[in-house]
Nucleic acid binder design. Sequence first.
DNA 1: AAATCAGACAACCGCCAGACA
DNA 2: ATGTCTGGCGGTTGTCTGATT
Length: 201
Amino acid sequence: MVRAPCCEKVGIKRGRWTAEEDELLLKYIQANGEGSWRSLPKNAGLLRCGKSCRLRWTNYLRPNLKRGKFTSEEDETIFKLQCSLGNRWSLMASYLPGRTDNEIKNYWNSHLRRRIYTFGMKKKPIKTAAEMPNKTIVADGLNCESLKKRGRVSRSKAKKYNNNTTTTTTAYISTLKPKSQVLEPVVELYALKEIQLLIQE
DNA sequence: AAATCAGACAACCGCCAGACA
DNA sequence: ATGTCTGGCGGTTGTCTGATT
C-alpha cells in the first residue's frame, strides 16, 4: 500500500518560520482551536505543510512553554529518565512541564550525551602519549585529539556511542549528588502506569 | 580579516498506531 | 475485515552563530 503524502510538496514553503507566519498560525488556532492539521494551512492562509504547522505550534507557539536554559534539576531528571526510559522523548517531556520532546531530544543530543560521553572516556584506561608512536592518545577506540581540539563529539561518533550509553549514564548518575529525590516517585509512577497497561491488556 | 569548524537549535522525514468509513 | 486518513513520535538533517585558527 502506498501512503498518500501528508501534503502536496509543490507550492509548500519550507525552512524557518517568519513572524508573520507565526502570527497567522497563532491567530487561527486561538480562533478555531487545535486539530485538523491537514486543512489548517489552507484555512489559515499558510503555505505550509500541516505537519509543519503542528510542529511549530507544539514546539514554539503553544502557551505555557518554558524557554531558556535547562536547570540542573532538569538535567538530572533527564539523565535519570533517559536511563530508565531510553529515548522516549515525549514521555520524558510529560515529566518536565513546559518542555517539549523536541527540546529535550536536542538538549540530550547536544549537551548531556556529550557530558556522559566525556565521562565514559575518563573511565577508560588511557595510554600515555609516550606509549603511542604518533603521540595520539587513544581511548575507547576513538581519537582524543579531535575531542581535545574543541571538545566536540562528532555526530557519527556520538551516534555510535549512543547505542551503548545506558551503562555509562547509570555510572554518571551515581556520581551526581543526591540533591533531590525528585525522580524516585516519577519512576515509581511510570512503573505503575506500565503495570496498569499490562493489566488492561 | 577570512576561512574553517563546532555548538545549538529549528525543522523535516519516514514510520507507526489508532480512528474511522 | 480492509483501506485510508490523521496525529504523534523518534531519528536525522539543515542552518545560523560564534569561536578558533
